[in-house]
């Protein structure tokens, strides 16, 4: 087995910076921010996804992942998050390939919608300014976001998921050291 690569160089301040990046992304859906540039995460885990999980996942958050043994060992060691076998049991769902269906993830209840899962979805590339048209809270008029390598049928699945509001799933899209977020409130139209 390969030796584990390190996590955050400064666990306190690097976690704060990664969290603020996610907060910025979640507050302004479609805005692309940088996170985890200095991390060396085991493949196929990308740096931004690694930073999100290092900053937010811990023993209180069951984690599901399709990223293979190396990445799971790395996450287990650095986050201490329990790895679960079913995506529907997880608070954080890490998808490096085709993700589980949105409808299969925890969506919370009408009274406790905050129990909906966060899907950390790795894609090939994120580019602001063109592509999808995003509207909703956090967006003044419209944000554009080009997502290369989004799962097939994602926009239709997202539209179906939105009808369950306030229940739902929040997505953090990650590519290399860049991320953008799709809170459950955002509406996506094809560009």
């Amino acid at each position: 087995m390969n030796a584990l690569t390190p996590g955050f160089a400064d666990p306190v301040l690097d976690a704060q910076a990664a969290f603020r990046a996610v907060l910025e992304a979640m507050s302004r859906p479609g805005r692309v921010v940088v996170a985890g540039s200095a991390l060396q995460a085991p493949a196929p885990l990308c740096r931004a996804a690694a930073a999100v999980l290092l900053a937010l996942a811990d023993a209180d958050t069951p984690l599901w992942s399709d990223a293979g043994a190396d990445a799971q060992a790395w996450l287990r060691f650095h986050c201490g998050a329990p790895i679960v076998a079913m995506p529907g049991d997880a608070a954080f769902v890490l998808a490096s390939g085709a993700p589980p269906a949105l409808a299969a993830l925890q969506a919370g209840t009408e009274e406790q919608p905050q129990r909906g899962a966060t899907l950390v979805l790795q894609v090939a590339a994120l580019e602001p300014g063109r592509g999808w048209r995003l509207t909703g809270p956090g967006i003044e008029h419209e944000h554009r976001l080009a997502v290369t390598g989004a799962p097939d049928g994602f926009i239709a699945a997202w539209a179906a998921s939105r009808t369950r509001f306030p229940r739902g799933v929040d997505v953090v899209l990650c590519a290399h050291d860049r991320l953008a977020a799709l809170p459950r409130t955002v509406a996506i139209a094809e560009g």
Partner: peptide, 19 residues
């Protein structure tokens, strides 16, 4: 401490997602 901050940060992110 950092465990507390993570818990609060997760709550803040969900709060932003459900205005």
């Amino acid at each position: 401490d950092d465990a507390t901050k993570r818990m609060i940060r997760r709550a803040i992110l969900k709060a932003v997602a459900i205005p």
